[in-house]
Every structure is written in structure tokens, then in C-alpha cells.
């Protein structure tokens, strides 16, 4: 199923990816080729097959809801693009 430029732009928006307009046709071609590869899956009947989400079919392990890590905010914020007074800064969201 080939994707057109409009669909590529929509997917890029959903993925929050800026894609240059001049690159869109190439993405459309490559992504369409990948979808053609994926379509090979249709050659096998999977009716009634239980989906496999985990390679060992194990449930997710849970732990007690207790704090195990100490607060390292200053260390983590030392590598942030922009912080002030312990807060991560982003462009104004609310007028």
C-alpha cells in the first residue's frame, strides 16, 4: 500500500517529527517499500494464533511501591537544555 506525501506529513506530525518538504517524497518511497515488505505477513493465516508479546511469555514483574532512589534533581538538570529554579523551561504554553 503506497503512501502519498500527504500521509507522510500526517505520520510525521503524529510522531512529532519535523521533516523538510523536499525530503517528503523520498520518505514516501522508502516507507511505501517497507510497507510492501510488511505485507508479506499476509501470506500466512494466523486465525486463532495467540499473539506473543514477550519472548519468554513471562508476566511483567512487579515490586513493592517504595522509593528506592534518592533525589538527584540537580545532577539530572545539569544536562538539561534549559532550567531555572529547579524547573525545566519550555516555550510559553499558557497565555
Amino acid at each position: 500500500m503506497p503512501l502519498d506525501s500527504h500521509e507522510v506529513e500526517k505520520i510525521a506530525h503524529l510522531a512529532r517529527l519535523a521533516v523538510r518538504t523536499e525530503d517528503v517524497p523520498e520518505y514516501a518511497t522508502n516507507l511505501s517499500n517497507i510497507l510492501t515488505l510488511m505485507a508479506q505477513m499476509d501470506s500466512v493465516d494466523t486465525a486463532g494464533v495467540t499473539p506473543m508479546a514477550h519472548p519468554l511469555d513471562m508476566p511483567q514483574r512487579l515490586r513493592a511501591d517504595q522509593a528506592t532512589e534518592s533525589n538527584q534533581r540537580e545532577l539530572f538538570q545539569s544536562i538539561a537544555p534549559q532550567v531555572d529554579a529547579g524547573l525545566y523551561l519550555v516555550p510559553k504554553v499558557i497565555e
Partner: peptide, 23 residues
């Protein structure tokens, strides 16, 4: 901020895979 940071920070193959997965 999200779109350009990701668009400029990731290379073409990573973007292809994110888009295929998103689709």
C-alpha cells in the same frame, strides 16, 4: 520545540523507523 528537536536530532533511518512504527 518537539518537532524540530526530533527532526534535527534524529537521522533519516531513525526517522523512517519512528514513522513506520507510528503508522
Amino acid at each position: 520545540l518537539y518537532k524540530r528537536s526530533r527532526g534535527e536530532g534524529f537521522g533519516a533511518e531513525v526517522k523512517r523507523r519512528i514513522m513506520i512504527g507510528t503508522y
